[in-house]
Design a protein around this nucleic acid. Structure first.
Length: 386
RNA sequence: GGUUCCUUCGUCUAACGGUUAGGACGGGAGAUUCUCAGUCUUCAAAUAGGGGUUCGAUUCCCCUAGGAACUACCA
């Protein structure tokens, strides 16, 4: 039916209902039973009407949900006479949805549980048109950590964002399949093909699930580790290329990939791990050179001596294990822990106390470059002590 | 407020009405070790509360509590 109520009147009705804490909420069906004269009068005033659905005030409407079972709602509880056609002639969602699905010959509607309350309204619409309603399956929603509808403030929510962060499609798919569903309670790894085979609506949980970014990360790490070095490098390239670094040495990149593989949670992480290869450390904070419980002056000596051991060892092409032993011996001599020697080296070479394994870092960087860096670092430490 | 849906470790979940309530993530401890990771071992951690039905209830029923969604001329 045509409704001529102004937005202002609707708003007034709404605030009045709220103020009264009225049990009845929504449109008051003001225009539902206008006489022909009253309508003509409104038309003459030039008011463009909306078209509302005359929802029955008696009886109930129900439909069967594949997951939820029978859902029934009293017609008096269905949204009172919702707008179907707006005053500008455009349909609202409910009208468009029903017509579109019907014309598209949709047989099954699977949507989130937040749509359950609109179910009876849609059924009413199908009945009004004399159409056969489709089958419904309302799926549990996915919530954020706070138990509210997952939204932007919980982190990434769009597939494109997950991809940008460096989540593998197969990891995301695998993880998401396990929110609200399980196969047998113990098996967790599924390929897309296996999911096509094994996924079943019947085993979907009714309760909403919380999206666990930690577990997604874990899945992603698992899938990353399943890749060959070559495959992984290919996936990593876009992230590396975005930095503007010189990536011409494929052998180095492959070695980098192999060493970084265990350390990646998301592909994007490669940038942090690789930075030392392409940018010179600044060593702004000299205290980084000193391991816990080690004096900076001692660290300085350790670095100097370690540098000599490294240089002669590498020049003589000694085994890594031999050089390691020599470095360990140095630590013993200085009365500090092994890390007291490794940390200043690590900081000198990579600029950070956290890095890829030391000898891999050296090999990636190359002998000359490594030596130069340690020499520079030595100067920094001297300045730091003074 | 009203309507509807939901309720097993912190999180995702498993358990023909009969199990020491299982697995995974995360957390703790330990091993490996040059840091960080990774890997391995290991520990803690739950049936929301109250009534029924039953020889027996996580499982079936009722009540309470809690949570969520919806309640637009948005979708």
């Amino acid at each position: 039916y045509h409704c001529y109520c102004s937005p202002e009147r609707l708003e007034a009705v709404r605030t009045e209902q709220q103020a009264q804490k009225s049990q009845y909420q929504g449109y008051d069906r003001h225009c539902r039973n206008l006489t022909a004269e009253e309508r003509a009068e409104k038309e003459n005033e030039g008011i463009k009407p909306v078209i509302r659905l005359k929802v029955p005030t008696e009886g109930k409407t129900s439909f069967t949900d594949i997951l939820m079972g029978k859902i029934t709602r009293k017609n008096s509880d269905v949204s009172p006479d919702p707008i179907l056609l707006k005053s500008d002639g455009f349909p609202t969602y409910h009208l468009a949805n029903v017509i579109d699905d019907h014309l598209m010959e949709i047989t099954h509607i699977m949507r989130a549980q937040e749509w359950i309350p609109s179910g009876p309204l849609h059924i009413l619409l199908y009945e009004a048109f004399g159409w056969e309603p489709p089958l419904y399956c309302h799926l549990p929603m996915v919530m954020g950590k706070d138990g509210q509808k997952l939204s932007k403030r919980h982190g990434s929510t769009a597939v494109a964002e997950f991809r940008k962060e460096g989540y593998l499609p197969e990891a995301l798919l695998n993880y998401v399949s396990l929110v609200g569903w399980s196969y047998d309670g113990s098996r967790e790894f599924f390929t897309k093909e296996e999911l096509e085979e094994l996924f079943s609506l019947e085993k979907i949980n009714k309760a909403p699930g919380v999206f666990d970014y930690k577990k997604l990360e874990w899945f992603n790490g698992q899938y990353i580790r399943q890749k060959s070095d070559e495959e992984l490098l290919e996936l990593l390239m876009p992230y590396l290329e975005a930095t503007g670094w010189d990536l011409s040495n494929k052998a180095v990149l492959l070695h980098l990939t192999a060493v970084a593989k265990d350390r990646l949670k998301v592909l994007k992480d490669i940038v942090v791990l690789a930075r030392f290869l392409f940018e010179e450390p600044s060593w702004d904070d000299c205290s980084l050179f000193a391991a816990k419980g080690v004096d900076l002056s001692v660290a300085s000596i350790a670095l100097k001596r370690a540098y000599e051991i490294l240089r002669s060892g590498l020049e003589a092409k000694k085994e890594q294990s031999v050089i390691e032993e020599e470095l360990a011996a140095l630590a013993g001599e200085l009365g500090i822990k092994i890390n007291g020697v490794f940390q200043p080296l690590r900081v000198a070479i990579t600029g950070s106390t956290v890095s890829l394994p030391l000898f891999d870092s050296i090999e990636l960087l190359g002998f000359d470059h490594t030596m130069n860096r340690i020499e520079d670092a030595l100067k920094q430490v001297q300045k730091g002590i003074e």
